[in-house]
Design a protein around this nucleic acid. Structure first.
Lengths: 138, 138
DNA sequence: ATCTCTGCAAACCGTTTGCAAGGGA
DNA sequence: TCCCTTGCAAACGGTTTGCAGAGAT
């Protein structure tokens, strides 16, 4: 799991942060389940002996350090995923809740068109689309 | 303000609901400021003598009745806007917070491409894009 | 030894709910 | 009259914070 270029928890020390038992454990939850989008509660549930506020604080740290990305999937919770590979966006199934990744390419010339038509410069934040996954759409 | 086809608060009565002083006042806030996206707190602030829970309940009713649309602008609050005109999406400026509307057209064949490449069927929920508005992009 | 981190408990913020009184139709 | 709607206050869910003690370097 993890190619040499993938950021690792050890990187924390480079910025004067400490690699604690709790931080390693939280990171491991993401390493163990590299495809899923996990909420703070998911992580806390997986690690009953790490305090919830430590989970929240650590997720912030990991996002800060570029190890995790915070994604907005439209719900009330925030989700986190490991930073790996290249730009992708999210497809959220409104029926079963599944979250798929989709390559940036599907948007084609969206950025160019937007800038031309409205002057708005698209940022690098992920785009979340809602609909039905292939299973639910039948 | 408002063309004949635009839904109006009076429509509430058709579904057995009552048109109260509070509901009319809340609706008026949206009519007075047709372009803005207002949160429940914005509405409550504009109407200090309407109870906050009444504001929340009324916004739900107005969404139910198709008079307002609930939009997710990525923040922690929910925003509401009057339903008028045709399908549009939102451009949120990450610097100044401005929210622009953009016609569905900019996405071109996105739906078709998505379905072909992934089997995902794009729903009719609005899409929110983040970046810099023309003023902030300079 | 130092200074970051952790656990705990309490606060927070936006939103929801139960209930009894108010008030449209 | 009927029963939908309101105000109030309390609860809620997810997240944040202040503080004293634990622990990484």
């Amino acid at each position: 799991v993890g190619s040499p270029e993938d950021p690792a928890v050890g990187d924390l020390r480079r910025s004067g942060r400490r690699l604690t038992r709790q931080r390693a454990a939280i990171w491991d939850v993401f390493v163990a389940d590299p495809e899923r989008h996990l909420s703070a509660e998911d992580v806390a549930a997986a690690l009953p002996d790490v305090n919830a506020s430590t989970v929240y604080r650590t997720l912030d740290v990991l996002v800060d350090e570029g190890l995790l990305r915070r994604t907005d999937l439209g719900g009330e919770r925030r989700y986190y995923e490991r930073v790996r590979g290249h730009a992708h966006h999210h497809l959220v199934c409104e029926r079963c809740g599944a979250v798929e990744h989709v390559h940036d390419d599907v948007f084609g010339e969206l950025g160019v068109r937007l800038r031309a038509e409205t002057g708005f410069v698209l940022g690098d934040r992920e785009i979340t689309l809602f609909g039905l996954c292939s299973a639910c759409a039948g």
